[in-house]
């Protein structure tokens, strides 16, 4: 949530004026092409997002050969969908099991696998998440309503390099025979960061019964 709490109906804030002023200056000086700015916003607001990661997860759930490919060569396996590019050049997948739960953070900035999850949510980039995910992961998970058994090992992946981590959540019970399309309704973006588990069939109305 933006820290100043203003909504869109109020007059432009100081930061809005300063950013727009810099953008106009750069256009006037011929240092940015406004059409290029629009193209970047369009791509990352509308075209790249968690819908990509959901396809990777459901194929991993339904195709053991694909899961093995993801383990052995994640860039190629994810690239098979065409999900390649900036902030996804060096992918690693980490798999949740009944004994191990994985959680991804970037304590130093906001590194995140754009190619499969899009731009990170505000909370992922926030100081509270970045400070606590490494030292207090159970408390962090509890804030997302996620409770794990006391003996589950939590593995936190701090994205300090250009390696980018995506969690493959556990496939929920009772989904045998589901199509990939229906399975996608159970995969949340938060589950692919590791702050939640995949949804149970009962929590995904509209999916296959």
């Amino acid at each position: 949530m933006p820290h100043d709490g203003h909504d869109h109906t109020e007059p432009p804030s100081d930061i809005a004026l300063r950013v727009k002023s810099l953008e106009s200056l750069l256009v006037e000086k011929g240092l940015v092409d406004p059409a290029a700015l629009d193209a970047l916003v369009d791509r990352y607001e509308h075209r790249v997002g968690p819908q990509n990661g959901k396809k990777v997860v459901t194929r991993a759930w339904t195709n053991p050969d694909y899961l093995q490919w993801l383990r052995d060569d994640p860039n190629a396996a994810i690239g098979d969908f065409g999900f390649t590019g900036r902030q996804g050049e060096h992918m690693v997948i980490v798999e949740n099991t009944p004994e191990v739960h994985n959680l991804v953070v970037c304590t130093l900035c906001s590194c995140y696998p754009w190619t499969v999850l899009g731009l990170p949510p505000v909370w992922y980039k926030s100081a509270p998440y970045r400070s606590r995910a490494v030292s207090e992961p159970r408390g962090v998970l509890a804030e997302f309503g996620t409770a794990l058994d006391d003996d589950v090992e939590i593995r936190v992946w701090d994205s300090t390099s250009e390696m980018r981590y995506m969690v493959i959540p556990e496939r929920p019970a009772g989904t045998g025979g589901w199509s990939a399309e229906d399975l996608e309704t159970l995969v949340t973006r938060n589950a692919m960061i590791g702050v939640e588990k995949a949804k149970k069939p009962a929590d995904a109305p509209g999916a296959a019964a």
Partner: peptide
């Protein structure tokens, strides 16, 4: 806060 590890590059 429980069994676990942090992995850092």
């Amino acid at each position: 806060d429980g069994p676990g590890a942090v992995f850092v590059d």
